[in-house]
Nucleic acid binder design. Sequence first.
RNA 1: GGGCCGGUAGCUCAGUCGGUAGAGCAUCGGACUGAAAAUCCGAGUGUCGGCAGUUCAAUUCUGCCCUGGCCCA
Length: 318
Amino acid sequence: MPDISSIPRLVILVGPTCTGKTDAAVRIAGEVGGEIISADSMQVYRYMDIGTAKPDRMQRSAVPHHGLDLVDPDEPFNASLFVGEADRIIDRLHARQVPAFVVGGTGLYIKALLGGLLDGPGADEALRAHYRKEAAVHGKAYLHEQLQEKDPQAAAAIDPRDAARVIRALEVFDLTGVSIVERQKAHRFNRQRYACFKIGLTMERDALFERIDRRTDRMMAAGFVDEVQSLLEQGYAPELKAMQSLGYRQIVGYLQGLYSLDEAVRLIKRDTRHYAKRQMTWFKADKVIQWVSGGDIDFIGREIREFLGRPELPASGH
RNA sequence: GGGCCGGUAGCUCAGUCGGUAGAGCAUCGGACUGAAAAUCCGAGUGUCGGCAGUUCAAUUCUGCCCUGGCCCA
């Protein structure tokens, strides 16, 4: 067992999209000499900057960022790869005694970073493609029937309509002969991999939805359509996971002539609100998170400095 | 001025041969272990435009009024 004091301490900053996580993190990390590890499943893709609200040049030069632009939009990326990447960065920062700020809205990535993932096989794209095809031909129910025969325990736990989870369960069983449910029971995210202090940024829902609308308008003004057009011209297909993400999917629909640009913007705003709500549900379930109003950056900074064991900075006087 | 068609959930609408109503979207709640900005589950939130009449009972039938659209003057 390692000495408890040698375990890296992480500042975790989470919350729904558009609550100001990046701004708060840049400011506070800048003040304490920390560096930022993005925990965002879409900001890992190169060339996807506007639609993912990636930190800009100024922010990235003010505070070093990690976890951005790791792969091309047609390359695989997932929670496991995130954990591997984040572990490497945390090691380096820890060796330099630099505070690490893990900042992002992808709840699973953070949960996996802190608690590990279950002991099981990685993604097998060929196998998944096979099952996806079967679902397309015979329907989702057919996949669930197969799961019922192979792994009744998992079949009972997973809704037949939730194809993504049915396929993952089939994948784990096919590759190991063991039920994913057994692996989950054995795991339960209870590996204490890091010491951490979790802060959640919140905001009145009406205010957050208003901010989402305004940010979407800013993305459009910043050339979001051009960005998507450029991705398509580079050969990145609309079917790619990255291109199915929030915003990109809707702009592709517009470029394909399925609906007007106004309609695409309306859909992006609507779907971003839905996404923010899903994030709230996810993070609400984590009872360890200390919730703070998104506007109260001073308070957040004080809490973080206390956690890091650093003295208060002198009052700045303005 | 006359005629016709509408007014039902936040929106678009369905429906009740008289027994106080339901779809989609929005909204709200939830799940989530290598796709997670993905994937999926649950919930109707309502003076049925207003007032009167007929009736045991009216959102439904009748009358008047208000209101939107179209047509004729």
